[in-house]
């Protein structure tokens, strides 16, 4: 199983791995700057930037005013002049305030100026539910940005990928949006030392199996792995694919898996309707892999509801391990 530690690797938390990536980038490339609300002395809303301001100073680790639109605009401008800004939102929900800069400027400038400039901007979005922060601080909005040509959208689910995808995002000449799941920040896992990148646009097969393809994003990849272990005990051999990148989507890996298993289960935390799973399903249905489907495609996504404040209701509106188990069993035992 890929997620298990190799004994020689040290363990870091997901937040520490992101901080290490930023630290490496700041030390290696003077064009890299960090921007965001309370990322300096306070260390960031989820303490991801931590004490980097002490190491690199306020010229490179900059607190921005409480204006997401303003901050994002400054970041886009900085990227246009040749800097490599990493802009942190306190909550991904606040992307709504910065949409003009992300969607109409960052994503469009390269195209509208005939390729004369690019926007090498990295934005980090703490996303997802499970913190009891209610409807305005718990959403999974990756599908919004995944709908915009000109943006790349990634969702790391492990500390190793959180570091590797951030460094890959900095190498990319175009804007890359990173959706980090808040519940994962404290999750520990093996992280290689030094500089490495995780390819954008390449899914990871976390577990190979022959009976059902579970395509999951972000924290759902972890839940799918837990479910897969239980399913294995019941004789159901699930393949778990961590999509990692929402845009551009890794078509080959997904299709090859469906051709092998004939059953597709998409698991994602964003609202089910018009979400990432809809795109995965359509991609399969439109491809030759369609001919290999031996059961309907199943999507498990967020409920048609704002995320409730009540912790029990909060759990109930996003897919949980038992939901994945039920769906996989239904697919394999002919109930679906």
């Amino acid at each position: 199983m890929n997620m298990q530690a190799k004994p020689t690797l040290r363990e870091l938390s997901y937040a520490e791995a992101i901080r290490e990536a930023m630290d490496i980038a700041l030390s290696q490339d003077e064009r890299v700057i960090l921007m965001g609300e309370d990322i300096g002395v306070y260390g960031g809303a989820f303490q991801v930037t931590g004490d980097l301001v002490e190491k690199y100073g306020t010229d490179r680790v900059m607190d921005t005013p409480i204006s997401e639109l303003g901050g994002a605009g400054i970041a886009v401008g900085a990227a246009l002049t040749g800097l490599r800004p990493i802009f942190e939102f306190q909550f991904s929900d606040f992307a709504a305030l910065a949409m003009e800069q992300i969607v109409n400027q960052a994503a469009k400038v390269r195209y509208m100026l005939g390729g004369a400039v690019s926007v090498p901007l990295v934005m980090r979005f703490p996303a997802g539910s499970g913190t009891g922060a209610a409807a305005q601080h718990s959403q999974s909005l990756e599908a919004w940005l995944g709908h915009v040509p000109g943006l790349k959208v990634v969702q790391p689910s492990t500390p190793e990928d959180a570091k590797g995808l951030l460094l890959a995002a900095l190498e990319d000449p175009d804007p890359v949006m990173i959706f980090e799941h808040k519940i994962l920040y404290k999750m520990k896992g093996p992280v290689p030392e030094g500089y490495y990148t995780t390819p954008i646009g390449k899914a990871a097969i976390r577990r190979t199996g022959k009976d059902v393809s579970i395509i999951a994003t972000s924290i759902m990849a972890q839940k799918a792995m837990t479910a897969a272990e239980t399913l294995a005990g019941e004789g159901i051999d699930a393949e778990v694919i961590d999509l990692r990148t929402v845009r551009p989507m890794d078509r080959e890996t997904v299709l090859a898996s469906v051709r092998k298993t004939g059953r597709l289960l998409c698991v994602y935390e964003g609202v089910k309707t018009l979400g990432v799973g809809a795109e995965i399903s359509a991609m399969v249905a439109e491809s030759d892999a369609f001919d290999f489907l031996d059961a309907p495609i199943i999507r498990l996504g967020g409920a048609e509801s704002p995320i409730p404040y009540n912790p029990e209701l909060e759990k109930a509106v996003v897919p949980q391990v038992p939901d994945i188990l039920d769906a996989a069993r239904g697919l394999l035992k002919g109930r679906i």
Partner: peptide
């Protein structure tokens, strides 16, 4: 019938209607 069942029937020169399904609602599966 599922797409896979249809593809298999095609490859074997079978009419899908000739096969009885055991899946939910009588769906013909591989």
């Amino acid at each position: 019938a599922t797409p896979l069942a249809r593809a298999m029937a095609r490859a074997n020169g079978l009419e899908i209607d000739a096969i009885s399904g055991t899946g939910p609602q009588g769906r013909i599966q591989a």
